[in-house]
Every structure is written in C-alpha cells, then in structure tokens.
C-alpha cells in the first residue's frame, strides 16, 4: 500500500472514530433522536457527549503533535511533549491554585486552575528558554538538560505543595494530575481548537525543515535551515499547544509518545505526511481512551490519564522487543 493511500485511510478512520464516539457511553444514543426537539438523549448528545469528544480529539491531536516535533528535534524516541517541563510547570501552577484557594476558602471555578496552570506552563517555558539562551546558540543538548532540570524542579514543588496542603486540597491536586476531560467547559473548546489547529498549520509549514532536522543539525544547517530560528519555533509552538492542552485537561501522558511512534512505523519520517496523520490519529486515539475511561468503571469515571498510562506501558514493551531491519528502535 503506498503512503498516500495509508494516510487517507488513517485519516478517514480517525474521522469515523470522531463521528461515532459521542453516540457511545453509559447509554447508547440513537442517531434518530438527535433532531427530536427536547429529547433527553439529544440534549445529552449535544450538550455533553459531543463537546467532550471534540475536546478529547483536540487534546489528543495537540499532545501527539507536540510529541512528534520534540522527538524530531531531540532525535530521541523517548522525548515526549512533557520533556521540556511544560506539564510539570502547569501542574505546579494548578497545585498552588488548589492549595491557596483551599487555604483562603476561595471558590474553585474552572477558570482558576486554568489560568494558574497556564501561568505555570509559561513560567517553565521561560526558565527553559532563559537557561538555553544564556549558553548561546540555543543548543539542543542544553535545552534538553534545562527541560529535564525544570521538570524535576517543578515536580518536586508539586509534591511539596501537596504535602503542605490539607487532605481535601491534596486530593484535588492528585485528581488534576491524573488528567481529565470531565471538567472541560464547552466555552473553552473554541480556544483549544484555535490553538491546536493553528499550531498544526504552523507545524505543517515547518515540515520540510523538521525533516532536515531529523537528518542532523549540521546537515540541516548546510542545507539552508536557520537552526536557531527553527529550534525556537519548535520549542514555542510545542510549548504553547501542550501548555494549553494540559491547562484544560491535565497532564495526559503517553499519547504524545505512542501516537507519533505508531504513525512513523506506518509512514516513515516525512513530516509533510506525518503531521496531518499524527494530528488525526492522535485525536481519534484520545477519543477512544476517553470512551474507555467512561465505560471501564461505569457509572463512575476513570481519569483518562490512567487509561493512557495503562496502554503506554505495554506499548513500550512491544517497541522494545520488536526490532526493525536495522535493529534499532527509531
């Protein structure tokens, strides 16, 4: 099967998943009732299921693209959208918010943790940026180390905040860290869609340069890529997409690792074909995970981050034990 046929097939399949998912859940909603005015199921579909599925799709698309470009930038299969500490920054922001709002009895709306985590994400971005630029040339190795350090730093701070919070706030923090699409308001969907779709278009415009970057930094520069500019663009676009998604849905792990990996196995390394495929497959994948999270413990709901993490472990074992013709992982 040639590559463009595979891409078409994957995208069609993903759209199918997106279209079907909202009908399933605790109860099946028949497509026939959708147009019936004031029908209870139609209400459920339009007000809850559809927005939530779309949110899952956008979050999955964003996280997967973030993972894809970080893996290309670091030429490392284990790079994730969270490698540079964006998500632990966001987690720290959210934790502080829960702790402070608990301590001062501020009412917890959904905008509070959103802004707090966005602030945290930008703080971690700013720190990684400053450390990397201070050494000159925006070197990838420095960026990676800075990211890892900032990641650990904020993760420890999250634990610290959790430790000093009371049991109630601590539980809320823990819940947030598991990631969930349950609290995502419909009003936020437009923002999420804007960031993820614009991000996708921008990544697509960088695709030929990202291909060259996977071939090696010096090689890319010798072929006309402005390395520093490209690296900054990748860093910023991935951080903004991932920061936004994490602020809205919490740090949902493994999506950004699994989806780009699986797509590369099927399509190779051409980012012109990879970008749209990763976008749609990532979206569909998280839709399915969200469906699973609503069904496994029904009527209770499992945090989606647990579902993706449960899938992520076996997936990586499989990657580890399979060898391609060249005998390596990547």
């Amino acid at each position: 099967m040639n590559v463009s046929l595979r891409i078409t097939l994957l995208i069609v399949l993903s759209l199918l998943v997106l279209a079907i998912c909202p009908f399933f859940g605790l109860t099946f909603i028949s497509p026939a009732v959708l147009t019936v005015p004031d029908h209870q199921d139609a209400e459920l579909f339009w007000r809850l299921r559809l927005p939530r599925t779309v949110a899952a799709f956008l979050a999955g698309a964003g996280l997967s693209m973030g993972g894809m470009i970080f893996q290309a930038l670091f030429r490392n299969p284990l790079a994730t959208p969270f490698t540079l500490g964006v998500s632990s920054g966001a987690s720290f922001g959210a934790s502080v918010y829960f702790w402070v709002s608990g301590a001062f009895l501020v009412k917890v709306g959904s905008l509070g943790p959103l802004f707090a985590s966005l602030l945290g994400a930008f703080l971690s971005m700013f720190l990684v940026w400053s450390i990397t630029s201070s050494r000159g040339g925006f070197q990838t190795a420095i960026m990676l180390l800075a990211g890892v350090v900032i990641n650990f730093f904020f993760s420890s701070l999250v634990l610290f905040v959790q430790y000093i919070s009371n049991a109630n706030d601590s539980l809320r923090i823990m819940h947030w860290l598991m990631g969930s699409l349950a609290n995502l308001e419909t009003a936020r969907l437009a923002e999420l869609a804007f960031v993820v779709i614009m991000g996708g278009v921008f990544v697509m415009s960088l695709a030929p340069q990202i291909d060259l970057l996977t071939a090696g930094e010096e090689l890319a520069a010798s072929r006309g890529v402005k390395l520093k500019t490209l690296k900054i663009e990748i860093f910023v676009v991935a951080s903004v997409i991932v920061g936004t998604v994490v602020s809205l849905a919490g740090p949902i792990g493994f999506v950004g690792l699994m989806v780009p990996h699986a797509c590369r196995l099927m399509l190779g390394w051409n980012h012109r074909s990879l970008t749209p495929t990763v976008f749609f497959v990532g979206g569909a994948f998280l839709c399915l995970c969200d469906l699973a999270s609503r069904l496994i413990l029904a009527p209770a709901e499992l945090p989606i981050g647990i579902v993706t993490a449960l899938l992520g472990g076996p997936f990586f074992l499989w990657i580890l034990f399979r060898t391609n013709s060249a005998g390596d992982l990547f």
Binding site: P208, T214, G216, L219, S222, R223, V225, W269
Partner: peptide, 24 residues
C-alpha cells in the same frame, strides 16, 4: 556539504535523503 561518516544515521531512504537537499 558532505559530513564526516559515522554517528547518527538519518532515518530515510537514499532518495528521500537526497530530496532533502533540494530544500534551498
């Protein structure tokens, strides 16, 4: 530019790799 051999091997076929050089 032809770099020193060894190190990271780009994950491309020969033709796809050569095509990257048309970027400029």
């Amino acid at each position: 530019y032809v770099p020193q051999a060894g190190g990271w091997i780009p994950p491309f076929t020969v033709r796809d790799f050569a095509k990257l050089s048309r970027f400029p």
